[in-house]
Amino acid sequence: MGLIGLLFTWPLAPVHGVIKLGELIQQQVEHELRDPAAVRRRLEAIEEARRSGQISEEEEAQAVEEILKLMSGPPRR
């Protein structure tokens, strides 16, 4: 990429930076969704909420199903 190419692409550098930042954030979120320790903490929180009476059995089953669906789904690209 010569000097002329650099001159024409330089104004778009902030846009490329924002796109790269968005991609990094997306990768981190996907990692957090599938991290076994994070999933276990969410499942334990749901179980504790059920034991303390904050949510019903149906809400517990729905929340667990949603977590498992997020965890087992294909990675988004």
Rank of each mutant, 00 (worst) to 15 (best):
A37W: 07
G17E: 08
R76A: 08
E59N: 03
L6N: 15
Q62Y: 14
E65F: 07
R77P: 04
A61Q: 13
V15N: 03
A61L: 13
I19C: 04
Q26H: 12
W10V: 15
P74F: 05
M1G: 12
V15W: 03
I46R: 00
H31P: 10
Q54S: 06
G53I: 03
G5P: 00
A38L: 13
V29P: 01
E59R: 05
P11G: 09
V64K: 01
Q28M: 14
R42Y: 01
A63F: 02
G73Q: 10
L6K: 08
E30G: 13
V15L: 11
G5Y: 01
L24H: 12
P14M: 04
I46F: 00
Q62G: 10
K69S: 06
G17L: 11
I67L: 03
A45H: 02
E32W: 11
P14W: 03
L12F: 06
V29D: 13
E32N: 14
A38C: 09
L21F: 04
A38D: 09
K20D: 07
P14E: 05
L21T: 11
R42Q: 10
P14N: 05
E57V: 14
E58R: 12
G2Q: 03
D35V: 04
L24D: 15
E32F: 15
W10E: 15
L12G: 06
P74M: 09
H16G: 08
D35T: 08
P75E: 15
G73N: 12
V29N: 06
R41H: 11
I25P: 01
R40H: 11
A37E: 15
E30R: 08
L7I: 07
L6M: 15
P14V: 03
S72R: 14
P11W: 12
G5R: 01
L70I: 08
P74E: 14
G53W: 05
E65H: 09
Q28A: 14
R41M: 11
A45P: 00
V64T: 02
I4R: 10
E60W: 02
P74S: 07
K20G: 06
L43T: 01
